[in-house]
Nucleic acid binder design. Structure first.
Lengths: 212, 212, 212, 212
DNA sequence: GATGAATGAGCATTCATTCAT
DNA sequence: CATGAATGAATGCTCATTCAT
């Protein structure tokens, strides 16, 4: 199962075997029952671990959610930065980011679903500090890449807050629909269209902004 | 408070006063604490009602969630169908739908947040039957409007499943960001750009589809 | 059983029947197993009540301890103030207080044992505020009585902090020994001696103080 | 810190260093949190030792309590017997015992507090056998000293069970009050008065007993 | 209809103790 | 002797739901 594969990238080595097994079991429970409805007993049962081991490794139930959330986010980010290194232009970079997102969602649909599901929990919990710090760090890296692009002035007149929605909106929306089963066709089948819509939205809006 | 205003449209009359008060209190609790973390006691406290009254009017906790969810969806749908009656073209209709969505989100941000938050609960609960039936009904109405449009062949080569994401994706994404506080500028400030992006995505993709 | 009798004075009426039953069961468990070692389950079992009822009436385990502690203290105080009203002199008053203490300990040995056992718990818990306030109130009443005594100057040269130990020390020590089973003879058998020792200690010390 | 000093008398040598460190840490935890509320983890943390080491040296948690309790009692007893060797009369001996007690309490207030706190635990635990044996042994030594006194007939008409309370009651009561913070003046400030009260109580009661 | 006391199954979490290294 | 990861029974407490008044 590819879920294991992702976890091995974040928690590697034989010593973390139990940790990975617990996380895997937890995620499956979370997705099937919902996070709140999942009991530690269910996780323990599925992971064939002891209650004590779960608390030893993850402190408490929220720690379990946070570990999964942060692992997924880190992996998604690692993939994005990797493809970005081979981008030859702004447009190419944006497309590569979009496609990396689509690929990751298709490869790890469970983690993708979990990210959406755990959003609320992470916003509240005691781990949001760590999450925020990581987000800021990652944003910096992306901004740094943008600043290197020769065509960067293309986006200068576009509010940054709007940009993200214009670029990712359609893709994220379709991925969400696919993950929830509302649509059946793989997101990757619409790769070209989604990338085109993203690029077009930026260019189009550039002229709108200037016109105003 | 405009939350009350929405509820009065769905549950009107003096006899439903307690019902509305309970729903209002419930929604506030749900948003502050999360749905699962909200206890009936909290709702009772806030609504200044009795436990018995809550159970009498809404059967159980899920009934509370469902009542709110269905009320919000109904109200959103009512607004959409109203503006659609004055649409003079396909493009105008799409823009009107988008703008109606943006207006509704800005006017009832609590209900909008609640809809996103309750999504998972409604998918599971015993009320999904009722929800599905309503969704089908509403979809029919929208399809009927589409069928009346002279330019309808414009969308014919576009997969229906993709269409929704192309049209609503960016707008929904930005509204979500605004509701969660990630961005500060009101969605309505970007009305024009979001509508332009939606329309462009459809046209652009039409040519891409045909080209393939 | 006379334990019930004391509780009926503090929690009276038919509506408090369950409350009294729970308190009684709790105290018996506390004395047999120790406060920390007593589980709510044990209390529930003995009181033939439900867990919910215990938490409904006493908030939590500490609330159970506090209710018993404050009830015992109140009853002890009520008895003391009653006998004090008939005191004809300072010496008579001191004797009456001592004897009331001895009588109370012999009549409610369980509550007396509990008071000693719960001392540490009450010092920490969230109920010490209430306890302190009651103690201050009671002290005032006692001071007021003292101030009325014609022979009050007899004690004026004696530090108040020492006075209590000189008067009550021997009696409390013997009562403790009796309650713990270390001695068998009833404290009331030594009423005369203990009162004599208390009075003598005060007079004797008065001269010592003046001599210094 | 003088706590270490007492422990070095009972557990001496370099080999017992870890043992002493653990006992010290345990006692501080016990006093701050209460015995039941103290976890082995807290002790381990404070002693900078390992869980295994604690179990190796003291068998289990009760062993920790017992080791401290017996060490404190032994030390207190050693001091008492030492001063008793220089007593020149019954009255002098009683005064010396009282003063040794006061000195010990002032010098080792933590151990004194611990003795009061652990009383209940030692009554139950599996170490009471050892405790009882030691108590009997020590009592014999004290009785032997009493038997040597020329004025011993002075106490003959006084019940032994009452004697202890008459002699120690006031002093113990005041020391307890000082240890708990209820009074601020050092017990040693009232040495003379407390000793006088003790001696007087015996003489006075002698006549009372005879009179009856 | 309205009330809120009572129920009790179910849960997160703790912690003394063991034992392989 | 020392270590600390692993165990799992046990506990305090919550909360949706019922029902007698």
């Amino acid at each position: 199962m590819s879920n294991r594969e992702l976890l091995e990238r974040i928690y590697n080595g034989r010593r973390a075997e139990l940790k990975r097994e617990i996380l895997l079991a937890a995620m499956q429970c979370f997705l099937e029952q919902g996070i709140e409805a999942t009991t530690i007993e269910m996780v323990r049962d599925r992971a064939e671990a002891s209650v004590g081991a779960i608390y030893h490794h993850f402190k408490n139930k929220d720690g379990l959610v946070a570990a999964l959330y942060l692992a997924a986010l880190q992996d998604q980010y690692d993939g994005r930065m990797q493809v970005l290194q081979h981008a030859v232009s702004l447009q190419d970079g944006i497309q590569k980011i979009l496609w990396a997102y689509i690929d990751w969602v298709e490869r790890y649909p469970d983690f993708a679903r979990f990210l959406y599901a755990a959003n609320f929990n992470m916003r509240q919990g005691s781990f949001q500090a760590e999450l925020n710090q990581q987000n800021i760090q990652r944003n910096k890296a992306l901004q740094a890449w943008l600043a290197e692009q020769p065509e960067k002035q293309l986006l200068e007149h576009l509010p940054k807050e709007l940009m993200l929605s214009l670029v990712m909106g359609a893709t994220e929306s379709y991925c969400r629909a696919w993950l929830s089963g509302k649509v059946k066709t793989l997101p990757s089948q619409y790769k070209v269209q989604l990338a085109a819509a993203a690029w077009q939205a930026l260019n189009l809006n550039k002229s709108l902004m200037i016109a105003e």
